[in-house]
Amino acid sequence: MKKVSQIQTLIIDGKEVGGKSDESILQVAKENDIFIPTLCYLEGLSDYGGCRMCIVEVKGMPRLVPACTTLIREGMEVTTNSEKIHNYRLSILALLFTERNHICSACVSNGHCELQTLALKLGLTHVEFPYIFPKMPVDATHDRFIADHNRCVLCGRCVRACHEVEGAHTKDIMGRGITSRVITDLKESWGSSKTCTSCGKCVHVCPTGALTEKGKSVAEMEKRRQFLPYLKLMRERR
């Protein structure tokens, strides 16, 4: 029994908008050109709700909610940006910068990185929390790709793309908390993976310079993601 989606009206940032009942606040906001920052969200992948960048205020709800996983309701009043929300987002972004080693100036994704762009858009000019400077490995064993854990934000996009779209589930996250890390198979080198199809989807969905193509120099790594919603649609119709 498939639920029929209904049209609902709601207010986002004072603007009256409409959407389908199975749409999230984020989707409806996007359709109406209202900007909500995101990081782990990517159209074409399942919703994750991990990065907390898209938190918004909903009138009557006791807590801030992630716009990506909260469905709209009739009469909902959403505030996507207030001083409080903005400050929380800045702090979360700052925490992400402290966690690994994001050296933008020496990164192949410089200029095309979602983390870097978010810092620019939200006006993060410095990070108030102390940097952790963990020693992280770089896996360059694959013929075509590199995994640089220094740049990883653990958004889980690669894991989801590999599992949900490619169907290989070569990548997953190991450990937990601050020590979690993205792995290939049984924490093996990427180059020796028997399950990896080398399709490159993980590389292109990665928001930062954690997964990149070989042979790219600083600022040369641009990602292509247009294929994703298309692929999703085609697979649903299969």
Binding site: F97, N101, I103, C104, S105, H126, P134, K135, M136
Partner: peptide, 19 residues
Amino acid sequence: VSFGDCAITANIPGMRNYF
């Protein structure tokens, strides 16, 4: 005024911090 990435993030000089 903290001037540039090295002053603000430790940037390239910070790359030695894991050793």
